[in-house]
Design a protein around this nucleic acid. Sequence first.
DNA 1: AAGATTAATATTGTAGACTAAAAAATGCTC
DNA 2: GAGCATTTTTTAGTCTACAATATTAATCTT
Lengths: 230, 230
Amino acid sequence: MDDDPVVQGILKAITQKRLKPGTKLGEDALAQVFATTRIHIRQVLGHLVSRHIVTHYPNRGAFIYRPSVQEARDIFAARRILETATLSAVIDNLDDEVRGRLRRHIARETGHDRNDRWASLALTAEFHVLIAELAGNGVLLDFAKELMLRTSLAIATFEVPGSPDCSPDAHPGIADLILAGDKAGALAAMNKHLDEIELRLQLGTSAPDPDDIVAIFQDIGVVPVNRSAD
Amino acid sequence: MDDDPVVQGILKAITQKRLKPGTKLGEDALAQVFATTRIHIRQVLGHLVSRHIVTHYPNRGAFIYRPSVQEARDIFAARRILETATLSAVIDNLDDEVRGRLRRHIARETGHDRNDRWASLALTAEFHVLIAELAGNGVLLDFAKELMLRTSLAIATFEVPGSPDCSPDAHPGIADLILAGDKAGALAAMNKHLDEIELRLQLGTSAPDPDDIVAIFQDIGVVPVNRSAD
DNA sequence: AAGATTAATATTGTAGACTAAAAAATGCTC
DNA sequence: GAGCATTTTTTAGTCTACAATATTAATCTT
């Protein structure tokens, strides 16, 4: 199910922030887009619901999940725990293959076209998944993948509009510390990196309600006008 | 979906080891047992597949998942990481409500009928879930629940037959250390507890293949005989 | 003209029937 | 009687049609 092209397409669109939280995933629409049947789409949506990527409202349909403020905080807390653990394991198990894969990823990340925002988003997420992969624990890898997706949803929900994306310079620094075997330094750098990402979000305020467009526009200074004054 | 009675029934049966890994979950059979439709059962099975509790073989059906040796080890490694973290958080956030819930659980666990093996199994699993619950992180709680279920599958797959279940005395000891605010002691006790559980399993050998009954019987000393010698 | 009520439309949910595939059972051959 | 092929039966997968619900549009009332 995870290698299903429809699932992969939706997940990729989420990590690249093409699909935003609250977006409706109509069954017929998806079936047409991916040239498949409604039954298939239904199975895919069920799978994504089970993975906390999509919410389902009975008789209304499936929507990209919108985390609450509390949940966003929980996701970052969980990431700190898991990523320090996996990072620690990676440094303990450093060998040539691990080093190679890490260096190759960093090369891709630094060498790619910075203007391609979508490729950037995918690559930065891949770095964190790679750490979990190199730790060699399949269970933790699954958790890490889920957390990365839910992080994407949290960021898309709470990021201040126009703020820059995840700083692209943090990953090479962390990778260097890993390759140097500096566990304490790498862990500190990773925690700082996660702090930076979380601090960019507006987690102090309550989650904006997607349906309440009045509140959204009020937030950016637009006030409803009396049209009779035109 | 998680509060669906069919899902709960199957999960409960797994934690109580009534449903063993490899058991076939026929659609029609389940529909009859739970007095529901095949469509409903199909959704439930899809959900359980997404949660790594059930495997699905195309055109053959759904079966209770049977973890590999490696996966069993990964599950325990993941539990050590997650449970030390949640336990740590619980001790940091000790208040009267937390203390009360912990004491109440221990009272239930020590006071129940020891002869009711099924209730025992459910209660010991509940202890670990309770720790995650008291940590106050919903994401980690979900992970913990999944890990407990997968642990049940690992134990059911690899436990040496006839070995005693999870020692019932460990939980009160850990609870006492938590209530005393002794973080280092509690963490050590929890790790020791997890070690004991894992060591009870036969993870040194390869996963027994359910279909290969010859190997199973060879393991317990039965050798195929030449019937012509009768 | 604004609001409420009702009708129309679209979308999701479900049931039944049908197709396809695998397991079991039977019968056949040696 | 053992091994193999074939048929039968069972079980999963899919398609079509219909029912239920929500959303949108239209109409009516105040």
